[in-house]
């Protein structure tokens, strides 16, 4: 059984890490993790609701 980790996954927006377990050429287990956090939900708390769009728009720029 082999374990492969691919980090970073490119050609996507954001940061992604993949880990897979391979047995006899077949993926048996896989984990994906998003490796970046900004806390936009926390930043939005207590703000003027009219401003929410400017913040949430910046979740992804693609």
């Amino acid at each position: 059984m082999a374990k492969i980790a691919i980090d970073p996954i490119t050609r996507i927006e954001g940061h992604l890490r993949l880990e897979v377990e391979v047995a006899d050429g077949v993926v048996t287990k896989a984990w994906s993790s998003s490796t970046m956090f900004r806390g936009i939900e926390l930043i939005l708390q207590g703000r003027d609701p009219r401003e929410a769009w400017t913040f949430t728009q910046r979740i992804c720029g693609v």
Binding site: A5, I6, D7, P8, I9, T10, R11, I12, E13, H15, V62
Partner: peptide, 13 residues
Amino acid sequence: HETIMAASGRRAE
């Protein structure tokens, strides 16, 4: 450049 480069993972680094 992560968003546009062809290589991934170890090769990219």
